[in-house]
Amino acid sequence: MIIEIGKKEIRDAFRNKLFLSILAMLLVLTVVSIILGSYQVKIAMDNYNSSISFLQSLGKAELPPMPNLNPISASKGFVNYIGMVGALMAIVLGNTAISKEHKNGTLRLILSRGVFRDTFLNGKLLGNLAILAGITALTGIITFVSLIAIGGVALTTSDIVRLLLFFGMTFLYMTFFTVLSMGIATVSTKGSRALLITVIVWLVLSFVFPQIGDTMDMDNQIPGGFFSSMGMSRDQEHQVLQQFKFYETLRDGVEEMSPTKHYERISYALLNVKPGFEANTPWEVVGLKWINLIGLLAPSAAIWLLTYIAFLRRENIYQSN
């Protein structure tokens, strides 16, 4: 039963123009960012190697570390695009999954056929997750192929595991927005309103919260950094920061509420975009960043359970607008 509903979801999605156009855009962006990234990796690699040999020829022993030149950081741009376009696509997918049934009145037809409501929801989720998984896999393949073909780099096992884990996170991130969107569409009676609300929630989670976090970082307020522009000593810096302790706590709390931030943090760590994780094995990175993994998983699960309850208890789900 679940499988049948899931299959129908997949068929439906590939007839949804909006979904298809966003998907196309996402794929184009993936290709562009990966190709650009691969080229940058290639050029930067060449450049680094020549500058290293130059420094060695000078007898300099302390060589500069490779600054973000690891091959897998080519996916960095991809993190941002998934954060925006991928989330939007997931929202469209989840919203249409529910709202089209309302609109066409097919919800009555399905639920009068001996399908439990939870089975119905599970089938929908399964179908949509399958689509997301397919998209993730596709972008993953594009990344691998272009890294090897264009970047011309040999990936180590660790690199491959890191990339695979990163695509896993991407899947989880998109899943969150699909679940959120399905949840809101289930609770709301009007499909287009539900879409609006979901988009607002997305805006708040993905842009507003991180932006507040940035704004609340004092050092971000002045180009070049506040403390260094004032020539402040570390003691003074600490004193000033002590005064803003409440800020700092608030700022953390705000950022912790954003799945986008969690996704970004764990992805940057996995992709070595942020320095400090080069020496760790992929699994150690996940271990260090487990909070972010939970931050991606727990909200999805919680929203899904709440959706169950809402759907189970509702009597007016058949209304068409």
Binding site: N80, Y81, L88, S192
Partner: peptide
């Protein structure tokens, strides 16, 4: 209207984030 809305959101995303992002990465 939902289609129109999402279309505009995509356009907004593109010109406000994607393009500046590309420029930034360069």
């Amino acid at each position: 209207s939902a289609f129109g809305f999402m279309l505009m959101m995509i356009i907004w995303l593109t010109i406000s984030f994607v393009l500046p992002q590309l420029a930034e990465s360069q």
